[in-house]
Simulated scan of single mutants.
Amino acid sequence: MLPAELSADLIGQWVGQHLWPLFRIASFLMVIPIFGAQLVPARVRLGLALLMTILVVPMIPEAPAVDALSADAVVITLQQILIGIGLGFALTALWQLFVIAGQMIAMQMGLGFASMVDPANGVNVPVLSQIYTITITLLFLAMNGHLVALEVFVESFRTLPIGMEGLGQAGVWELAHRISWMFASAMLLALPAVTAVLIVNISFGVMTRAAPQMNIFSLGFPIGLIFGLFAIWVLHANFLPHFEQYARDTYDFMRQLQGVP
């Protein structure tokens, strides 16, 4: 028998009010780009999750009274983890959009071999993708995008309260379709530079057919590279409006996952 101070009902109430929000917040912080990067130690992310849980718990609706050791508690825990990962994936797609766009441009202009290790993800990416990643990270922090993302995430405790119902089949299907949005947006972002470099390559191809004795490859490669860098410099003038639009679409999608019109 547990003493009156630590009864089974009291333990279940603690689990519902603190542990379930902690699972959702911790899974969200483990996935999002800046706080979930490998550069941030797991202890720091866990500390941020605990601090956010302490601040968020007084503002969210009360959790249902469920036995802490029952099957329903396990289902609710898995639902909280799924919600946190789903909302974090929506934000991660915003970063991967620019990484894919940088890979498309780099492969077209001949910079695909110039790759470096991305310290955030631990994989090799082209240098251009790394430049885009640093640029959008600085823009995201300068525009207080992390505060907006956390605000949208905290709203999920009211729109998707703790319980047996989570994202559901429709939410998981929307997350799967978000991958196609990521690739389509990356293609639209990289299309001007890719098209410009393609025109240069076609021009040198025509020159090769007209004068086969000329070594067009040794001449066309550096010119295509220089023209690609010029196209990237021109596109940077509209980089901020594109990022604002994609960030706005990401926040709208996070609210759409929560069932907010």
Rank of each mutant, 00 (worst) to 15 (best):
A190P: 00
M164K: 13
M254V: 08
L87C: 06
I179L: 14
S70W: 11
T159G: 04
V152S: 14
F227P: 00
I136R: 12
L91T: 05
V123R: 14
L87T: 01
F253S: 05
I60A: 05
P261H: 15
A101C: 04
Q79K: 13
P33S: 12
S129D: 01
Q258T: 00
L94Y: 13
G224H: 01
I105L: 05
V154N: 07
I226T: 01
L235A: 13
S218K: 02
V234L: 15
G88Q: 01
V260G: 03
Q79I: 13
I105R: 10
S180M: 07
R248F: 13
L139H: 10
L87M: 15
V194I: 07
I223N: 09
L10W: 09
A186H: 02
Q258L: 01
F221D: 01
Y132H: 14
Q256W: 09
G88D: 00
R248N: 14
P241L: 03
V75Q: 14
V125L: 15
I232V: 15
L78G: 11
V117C: 06
V127T: 05
F230K: 08
Q103C: 05
S180H: 09
Y132N: 15
D249E: 15
P126F: 13
S27E: 08
M1A: 06
Q245R: 15
T77Q: 06
L22C: 06
V56Q: 00
A73F: 02
G16Y: 08
Q38Y: 06
I199E: 14
A73G: 00
M52L: 15
A4F: 03
V172H: 09
L167M: 11
I25F: 08
F204K: 09
I232D: 13
F23L: 14
A237N: 12
L46N: 08
L139C: 11
V57C: 04
V260N: 06
F28C: 10
P61M: 03
S218W: 01
I202P: 02
L87S: 07
W95M: 13
L191W: 13
G102W: 09
T250M: 15
L139I: 11
Y251Q: 12
A8C: 01
V74H: 03
F157D: 02
Q38S: 06
I83T: 07
F153Q: 07
L257M: 02
Y246V: 09
V148Y: 06
L189M: 12
G145Y: 01
A231F: 06
A4E: 09
S7E: 06
M187D: 10
L198W: 08
H146Y: 10
E155T: 03
E151F: 03
A142P: 00
A190K: 00
Y246M: 13
V56C: 00
V15L: 05
T133I: 07
D118N: 14
M214P: 04
D9S: 10
I34C: 00
L91A: 13
